[in-house]
Design a protein around this nucleic acid. Structure first.
Lengths: 165, 165
DNA sequence: CTTACACTGGTCGATATGACCAGTGGAACG
DNA sequence: CGTTCCACTGGTCATATCGACCAGTGTAAG
């Protein structure tokens, strides 16, 4: 009773999307309950999940930690200009040693790297930025503080889009 | 046999941190196995976990989806300048309708909003940005493309820092 | 037509879960 | 100094899920 899904061409199909959506909404329900709610056999859900994970679409099911609840309510995005001589790799390694640096990308444009940084207070944010600036090769740091999270990190709409489009 | 942990003052203590670390590394192991590895009773792990969740430190255990594996390998950060007249809230709602917008913050500085956007190709990125620009109230969009993810989104070092510091 | 594959629907034993409980030690407080 | 509160212990319990199997069947592609 194939429902016409073809998981070989598109990376996710409608069933995959519904499965991810379901897990996103209620992560604790388990395979059996998923199967019931999606109206398919349990083995099918199991196979789908395994494939999603092995294909890398679903990275993991680790705990999502909220920095604010941890005591780090200040978020900032810092753009770094680097001296040409210093490579991105060693720079990234130095940044990685600073726990408050949650994320870093190399980017196009005037800046060379874009980092997401958190801190306990604005004052401590300054400390963190100073620590970043202390790294060799950083010429300049431009900081914007995130005032509010208008859209929290999400992927669900994208999953649905990928399944249907 | 209290191990001297005081979870009332600091938001997380050493045991919490080890628990989160363990779950981050191997999300599938379950409460019992956690208890064994941490060398505490199972009930303790259960209580800690419940509290971490209820306190909001751990948001959830939902699947972490990788946009790249979904077919959206292009990431960009877009800074929006808005017309003063248009509020941030309605703007965020319009942005939320675009699946490729994964995240949006209001920020300080020249721009008003900073968004994380993904796309299948650079060409499609242009389409997405056009869709963003089509929203009423957007005066200007400045885009930087993420070339490489030097530090993937992480919170573990922060958790350890919060537990010790 | 034949092959390949996905899904079905059933069973199996092993294991984890979440709920209890009484007891104990430490820390804070009066 | 005694009391109270709280976290942790270590034990049991019934229930539910897990992950593994299996043969059978439909669709789709070659």
């Amino acid at each position: 009773m194939t429902s016409g899904t073809d998981s070989s061409r598109r990376s996710v199909d409608a069933l995959d999307a519904r499965l991810i959506e379901l897990l996103e909404a209620e992560p604790r329900i388990g395979v059996l309950e998923c199967a019931r709610r999606l109206g398919v056999a349990r083995g099918t859900v199991q196979a789908r999940l395994d494939k999603l994970v092995s294909r890398g679409v679903v990275r993991d099911f680790g705990p999502r930690v909220d920095p604010a609840a941890l005591g780090y309510p200040v978020t900032a995005f810092v753009t770094l200009e680097l001296r040409q001589a210093v490579g991105h790799q060693p720079m990234a390694q130095r940044l990685a040693r600073i726990p408050e640096v949650l994320e870093a990308h190399t980017v196009t444009g005037a800046g060379d790297m874009l980092c997401r940084i958190v801190a306990r207070t604005n004052a401590e944010l300054q400390d963190v930025i100073d620590r970043v600036l202390a790294s060799e090769g950083v010429l300049r740091a431009t900081t914007v503080i995130a005032l509010a999270e208008q859209i929290p990190h999400r992927t669900l709409p994208l999953v649905k889009e990928a399944a249907s489009g």
